[in-house]
Design a protein around this nucleic acid. Structure first.
Lengths: 125, 125
DNA sequence: CTAGAACCTGACGTTGACGTCAGAGGCAAG
DNA sequence: CTTGCCTCTGACGTCAACGTCAGGTTCTAG
């Protein structure tokens, strides 16, 4: 494996990214539109992604599931990519963390109430 | 306190329900539209709620926060009110419970990833 | 009696992450 | 060459839980 071979990564098309990450092609295009993913283009205009795009999309899904918006993710992507932050970004990170924690607590409370109902209705046939 | 007094509950108007539960008046009307809340009406057409409407609205909020739709809540309200369920309702209860649990796990995973980033960026000023 | 707060019924607007459709081009296999 | 799959760019549709506005009625304090 020469140095030039190491530098030339195998690029993949949008379908492979979508299948790899378990999302739709439409979703991957949407992420680009939101500034989350900036693929190269082939001479004919087709999107060409690096391998790690799949992991990135999975990461986006995880953040979406946690209630972050694509806008918020774009603002925090530099932290993730460079490992460097300013004060404002650190504050945002902590704010999001606290928000997610609060939401997790809400979920747990709802879970407890549902479990109560389930327990009651299981003994009351 | 006579028997008739006990039977006549003090009814409240929509504003009091909304303030008591910490939601908007619009939200309370919306819940009625979705079949979640069926208040009486005064002769002039104003909605009159029983005291427990406030607790019900809080319950709705908790279920919404857990990702249940108003439709799902209406389907499960009989369980909650009567404590009685058929097989289908029990299955729905368990399905919702599992969905919420899965979502809680996702949240925890997202939280862990954010905490990683926070830890790294805090040591990398 | 009157001003202002609270209430009423529609009905259209908002937000986010996509789904879906139309019409046109691109790419490998036979 | 053509068949069939993949991809492209718009652009409109969706869904849920409300927000918001308009125009009118009702209740209540002074």
């Amino acid at each position: 494996m020469s140095a030039t071979e190491a530098a030339v990564e195998r690029l993949i098309r949008i379908g492979e990214v979508a299948r790899g990450a378990g999302v739709s092609v439409r979703a991957v295009r949407y992420y680009e539109q939101q500034g989350l993913l900036m693929p190269e283009r082939s001479p004919s205009g087709q999107r060409l992604y690096r391998q790690d795009a799949i992991a990135r999309v999975r990461f986006f899904q995880q953040m979406f599931a946690a209630g972050l918006t694509s806008r918020r993710i774009t603002e925090l992507l530099p932290c993730w990519d460079s490992g460097h932050t300013d004060a404002e970004q650190r504050a945002m990170l902590r704010a999001e963390r606290d928000r997610i924690q609060a939401k997790a607590d809400e979920l747990q409370a709802a879970l407890d109430r549902l479990d109560e109902v389930i327990a009651i209705t299981d003994t009351h046939p």
